Simulated scan of single mutants.
Amino acid sequence: DNTMCELYGITGDSPVRANDMLKEFYTHSHKHPHGWGLRYFNKNGTAFMCKEAVSAHNSLALPELLDHEIEAPVLIAHIRFATVGSIAGSNSHPFTSWDNSGREWTLAHNGNIYSGMELLPYLDTQSGETDSERVLLYLTDAMNKAIKDAGHPLDAVQRAVLLDEKIAAIAKRNKLNLIIYDGETYYIHTNIIDTLYSAKKSNHICFSTHPLSQKDYHWEKVPMARLFAYKGRRLIYSGKSHGHVFKPAKLPEYDQGSFVI
């Protein structure tokens, strides 16, 4: 049993009705009771975010939310199993930040961050306590430095190349399942075996920690230790493997807490 948090996401060329998938995804919250979050963007780019520090199955807001049609070309959902950081709204995913070019970034993570000097500077500036939030601040900082050095904002492929390099730099010691969105490009990374799957449809691609049971979805494992960047359904960048691959912890149910994010 994979004891980490769980992720679910959509990147598409047109709005996708996500209610059934989300309902199924959030049933997994019995095993991931420390918070849930959902961020999606409608077709004109307007963002909606809801997150709570309660289990999705105890939430009063979530059933109400899922009673409305959720149709979005871009979506990131998360359920949390806490190890680092208390059970608090500021520690629920997804996290957001703005870079100096005015671009907003959204990140959700599962895995474990064991070490890395790169992330230490953000202990004082983050709003919550999670190492996942520090990953976002680290990436935003790298983006700001690159924008400053270039003298102009980076284009989509340049941003993907930079993210690829910066994720590879911290992947050696750390478990990084990531879904990141920058308002234009949707990035996917996994380096933990059998913990991220994708299903391609005619107008969108779904990603999920576990294959979901919806009919007509053919789930495949996302290739290991590489960054993928999508615009809608179209792959615009595919990185080379950085080689740092982990097996998920197989822990007894009662001992999950020591090992998760």
Rank of each mutant, 00 (worst) to 15 (best):
N110C: 13
A142D: 02
W105S: 00
F48I: 01
N91I: 06
W98N: 05
V161S: 15
H68L: 12
E64V: 14
Y114F: 14
N58R: 14
L136K: 10
S132G: 14
L154D: 05
S59Q: 13
P121M: 07
T130S: 14
N144W: 04
V84C: 14
Q126R: 11
E104D: 00
Y122C: 05
G37L: 06
A61N: 14
K31P: 00
L75T: 09
G37R: 07
L136V: 07
S90K: 12
R134S: 09
Y26T: 02
H109F: 13
F41A: 10
E71G: 09
R80Y: 08
V157T: 12
D155W: 03
A72C: 14
A72Q: 07
K148L: 13
G85Y: 06
V54I: 15
L163V: 01
L65S: 02
E24H: 12
L139S: 11
H93M: 09
S55G: 14
Q126M: 11
K148I: 12
M143C: 05
A142Y: 00
S97Q: 08
L136N: 09
H152V: 11
N58Q: 14
D99M: 03
E133P: 04
H152Y: 09
A61Q: 15
G45T: 06
A108K: 01
S127P: 01
I70H: 03
P94H: 05
N100Q: 08
T130D: 13
G116V: 06
I79D: 13
P94V: 02
E69R: 05
P63C: 04
G102W: 02
N91G: 10
R39F: 00
K43Q: 11
N91A: 06
F81L: 08
S115R: 14
R103G: 02
Y114G: 09
Q126T: 01
G128W: 01
T125A: 13
S127R: 09
L139Y: 11
A72R: 04
Y138P: 04
K145H: 03
Y122T: 04
A82E: 01
